[in-house]
């Protein structure tokens, strides 16, 4: 574990449209174990937010409890963060999001935080189609309490102590599809080329976006027999639809759309371009997505990439019929009806 962060940066490091280098998107020094998948995800988040030209302070970093939930401390230190209580990140994010629709909400959770203690809130934040990016840093174990199996540990997986997991695992991607999530993707912390554009697409999606990222725990779950290790994941991963994120400003040339690709426009004008391994895979077909997901699972393959996207849907702000101005910015003159209205109410209560 490093304890000093070098301040030197390449003098010609590229800047984004805001004139900022990725340095402006960095966080505190990580206290996670060296080689932890979570740190790679943090790096990808910084890259994605930088590439999307979002000012760091317009992001809210939300988390629950666990190794994953500590990680928002390690990126975007100009953004506010809220490390709440175990399994309850979705509710805090819901309240925050309803209060101020103008920020970008990045929720970072883990498999224990989501698939066990937080299962209820996970299900309900999906139902509400809250406009947020929900990242599960999925390592199949409870790292911070020293490696107990979590609910996403695969059946038959061998723990570091040699115990075989007898329970069926919970597949959060399959579950999110069933619950009506409007953006569902899976990735691997070791595949930044796939993860960064997926994150960009998720953050640009106007609705709930789940990103289930297999993120190996180097300390407690990276041994032979583990089904969430770097080696096992690399051997079993199958990128179903390789994603490329195309910002609105970027002109798409015919030349770029070649071979087996599909463009899916996002709500804000950006689009996701998919390079597909299989011509028949349409990521806007929920029923087929569920089928393909289960097929891969039965073949012991880990399907990654963008699995499902519903580009046009009413998110929670639309459902609540909220104004464009964030509720947090409304003042007395809008909020308080005053004494005249109260006197009319008194009259009605006589």
């Amino acid at each position: 574990m490093s304890f000093i962060k070098p301040s030197f940066r390449h003098p010609s490091a590229p800047t984004n449209a805001l004139g900022l280098t990725t340095q402006a998107y960095e966080g505190g020094i990580s206290t996670l174990c060296a080689g932890c998948g979570h740190d790679s995800i943090s790096a990808s988040i910084m890259q994605a937010v930088w590439a999307l030209n979002i000012p760091p302070h317009r992001v809210a970093k939300m988390s629950g409890i666990g190794c994953s939930s500590k990680s928002p401390n390690y990126f975007l230190n100009k953004a506010h963060g809220f490390n709440s209580v175990h399994g309850r990140m979705p509710s805090v994010t819901t309240g925050a999001n309803v209060a101020n629709r103008d920020l970008l909400y990045i929720g970072v959770s883990g498999d224990g935080d989501t698939a066990s203690i937080g299962m209820g809130q996970f299900a309900h934040v999906i139902r509400r189609n809250l406009n947020m990016t929900y990242i599960v840093e999925n390592n199949g174990c409870y790292g911070l309490t020293k490696g107990q199996d979590s609910a996403t540990a695969d059946e038959g997986h061998k723990s570091k102590k040699g115990k075989i997991n007898p329970f069926e695992s919970i597949d959060l991607v399959a579950l999110a599809l069933e619950l009506g999530a409007t953006f569902v993707a899976r990735s691997f912390s070791g595949d930044k080329d796939q993860l960064v554009p997926l994150l960009q697409a998720a953050m640009s999606h106007k609705g709930f976006a789940l990103l289930d990222v297999v993120s190996p725990c180097v300390t407690f779950n990276n041994h032979p027999g583990s089904t969430k290790s770097y080696d096992y994941t690399r051997e079993h991963v199958q990128a179903g639809s390789v994603v490329d994120f195309v910002p609105m400003e970027q002109e798409i040339t015919l030349d770029q759309i070649k071979g087996s690709t599909q463009e899916v426009a996002l709500h804000n004008g950006d689009s996701v371009r998919l390079s597909k391994l299989n011509d028949n895979y349409d990521p806007t077909d929920r029923v087929n997505a569920i089928k393909v997901l289960h097929k891969h699972k039965s073949e012991d393959k880990l399907l990654t990439g963008l699995i499902y996207l519903e580009p046009e849907s009413d998110n929670f702000h639309d459902i609540l019929n909220l104004p464009e101005t964030p509720l947090s910015q409304l003042r007395e003159n809008t909020l308080c009806p005053g004494s005249a209205a109260l006197s009319a109410i008194n009259t009605g209560l006589k």
């Binding site: 809210a60 809220f82 709440s84 209580v85 309850r88 979705p90 509710s91 805090v92 994010t93 819901t94 309240g95 925050a96 999001n97 309803v98 209060a99 101020n100 920020l103 209820g120 809130q121 309900h124 964030p326 509720l327 947090s328 910015q329």
Partner: peptide, 14 residues
Amino acid sequence: SAIGMVIGSNWNGA
């Protein structure tokens, strides 16, 4: 969840 939302909103200024 109800109190979680309340805390989230208040934290964010509403």
